[in-house]
Write a protein that binds this DNA or RNA. Structure first.
Lengths: 154, 154
DNA sequence: TTGCTTATGAGAAGCATTTGCAACTAGGTT
DNA sequence: AACCTAGTTGCAAATGCTTCTCATAAGCAA
């Protein structure tokens, strides 16, 4: 409530981005710190307004963009829809999306990342960012398809 | 050779989608068949207009959407910007995007795909689709061996 | 050719996101 | 504490991409 504590994680994060600490930004950052899911801008705004009803849409977008640019947030664009955000201070991970529930699980594979670097290297590139998303459905106990999947055309 | 009479690949593709063969759709599909890159709707429209200047933006979007829905085209949303399209009948591949030029290179890694399946399996999931994109910048140092692929594309 | 259905063009509408601008404020100065 | 000024904010208008509305124009089977 009262932001008198200088041990305020929220303010710290904003300052680390080289931004002025405002009530709006604190509310927005707090939302991200407390979110377990990956909310989009609209959801962030709605949740932030619970602590500060005066926050505008423009500020939400601007703040999210600033924090992403400063590397304190990450944004994802699953399915090509609205961008979804999450705090960046967690270990890197990729996403497995449950197509039926929309639920997102996080995973990491050092091996896959190593191969990605190798591939980029073969082409003479350096990876700045990557995106790996597995769109999945819960597997049945019984194997349904003996053959490989993959969209091999005729 | 301009005899678009009977054995027309373009018309076939449209018919296979269960759509009526129109001049506009032929022009649009021809663009995709001839494109080596991954054009977005605007580019598809511009190119299609070279063979049929009357094609509208609405028709382009509608046709692209129909063909994607029918599985004859694939669409990608790199960076969360405009959707980019490609013919679906080519072997599966992932994308390496040059952040400076926007150029897209295709690659395949059986090993990465194997690991993806293993990961999904660990969570009890079956992969329906996946997306792997490497956003890169040209490396300063000389590449280890750039001209080694060839299996990607035709 | 007829006739029914789908496709098309032009522009309006819809979303998510960005921006112009005048008023406002955080945070360092005096 | 009053002061300054660059950074911020809210509002609304503007974007960029994509979809929809609707009257007109084909496609294609009979």
């Amino acid at each position: 409530m009262n932001g008198q504590h200088h041990l305020d994680q929220t303010s710290d994060l904003i300052r680390r981005a080289g931004l002025r600490v405002t009530a709006q930004r604190q509310a927005i950052v707090r939302v991200l710190l407390e979110s377990e899911d990956h909310p989009d801008a609209e959801q962030v705004l709605a949740r932030a307004r619970q602590s500060d009803a005066s926050i505008s849409q423009a500020t939400t977008y601007r703040t999210l963009a600033s924090l992403v640019e400063k590397g304190l947030l990450h944004s994802h664009t699953f399915n090509g829809s609205a961008s979804r955000f999450e705090i960046a201070d967690r270990p890197h991970h990729d996403h497995l999306i449950d197509l039926e529930t929309g639920e997102v699980k996080e995973f990491v594979s050092r091996e896959i990342e190593r191969m990605q670097r190798r591939i980029a290297d073969e082409y003479g590139y350096e990876i700045i960012a990557h995106r790996l998303e597995l769109y999945c459905r819960k597997a049945d106990a019984a194997p349904s398809n003996p053959g490989q999947d993959s969209e091999s055309g005729a």
